[in-house]
């Protein structure tokens, strides 16, 4: 009896684990086929690791100035050279990495947290609520991204937190629209009727039964949004609206190097290069993710 129960229990555990582990493995197998996406994926992992561990390993201080060592080109001592105040650019880039990635992730998560419920409610209830919400979203979309972010930052004041908020607001419409579309399709499915026929409340239907089924396009969208969030945030800092000196934010560093473009191009080059690397990594990873998650691409 107990033996049989144990067997059944063991059986059960195996069954619980199997599909999930299998789907993750399956996903990785499909991602692996897309070499560029895999490179993007590993680049992101490395960047995250560097942003966490890196600041403890650098030998220079990101903010200490050294007037005698200004405008040094890349060397063994200063790998990426020094800027107009003699600060080590490599150290500053390593320290700025967590800022850039942090803004990217934080703003997208904030945008998703607001955008997803808005989209689901809009799609599920439809009618007048849908109309009002979607027109507001249209208004947000009518602004060019950087202009909207600029307007928000100039209202809130220039700081990294406000830049994150601004970029998050800019990300809301995209999430809301994607989710609304999939909710419109999902609510017509019979299992929604079935769960309603069981007496479930709207809240339960929306968050427990519809949401998990409409999230997969969001994952891809979020990855791609991180790239554009990084760009927008860097752009705002470049314009002086975001990170304030001496914060080692890449956009702000780009601005530092702007005046010395012809004499000491490396000051602007390295932050610019890293912005490109981050954006590119998220973009190609996002594209690969889309292909890997798309059942139609299954081979």
């Amino acid at each position: 009896m107990t033996n049989q129960q144990q067997v059944e229990q063991g059986d059960k555990k195996q069954k619980v684990e199997n599909p999930k582990v299998k789907s993750i493995k399956d996903f990785y197998r499909r991602l692996k086929k897309n070499k560029a996406a895999l490179i993007g994926f590993y680049t992101i992992l490395i960047l995250i690791a560097v942003s966490i561990i890196g600041p403890f390993l650098t030998s220079h201080d990101p903010n200490s100035t050294n007037v005698t060592e200004r405008f040094q080109g890349p060397s063994a001592e200063y790998w990426f050279g020094t800027d107009h105040m003699g600060r080590d650019i490599f150290t500053r880039i390593i320290h700025g990495m967590s800022l850039t990635l942090g803004i990217g992730f934080a703003s997208v998560i904030m945008g998703a947290l607001v955008g997803i419920p808005i989209g689901i409610i809009s799609g599920y209830y439809g009618g007048r609520i849908d109309n009002i919400i979607m027109r507001l979203i249209d208004i947000l979309l009518a602004f060019p991204g950087i202009l909207l972010a600029l307007a928000i930052v100039s209202i809130l004041g220039g700081s990294l937190v406000n830049v994150t908020i601004a970029v998050a607001i800019y990300a809301i419409p995209g999430f809301a629209r994607i989710i609304r579309g999939s909710t419109l399709a999902a609510k017509k499915l019979e299992y929604v009727d079935a769960i309603r026929a069981l007496g479930a409340k709207d809240g339960r239907i929306i968050f427990k039964h519809i949401m998990p089924n409409v999230l997969s396009p969001v994952i891809v969208n979020a990855t791609l949004y991180i790239a554009s969030a990084v760009l927008t945030a860097a752009g705002l800092s470049f314009l002086g609206m975001g990170a304030q000196p001496p914060t080692p934010e890449w956009g702000a560093m780009l601005n530092d190097g702007r005046g010395y473009m012809y004499d000491a191009g490396h000051i602007a080059f390295f932050p610019g290069m890293f912005i490109v690397i981050v954006v590119l990594a998220f973009n190609i990873f996002g594209d690969g993710l889309r292909d890997a998650l798309d059942p139609k691409m299954k081979k």
Partner: peptide, 11 residues
């Protein structure tokens, strides 16, 4: 319901 294939939540 009519359609057992879609009447259960896939997740």
């Amino acid at each position: 319901f009519q359609e057992p294939m879609t009447s259960l939540n896939p997740v």
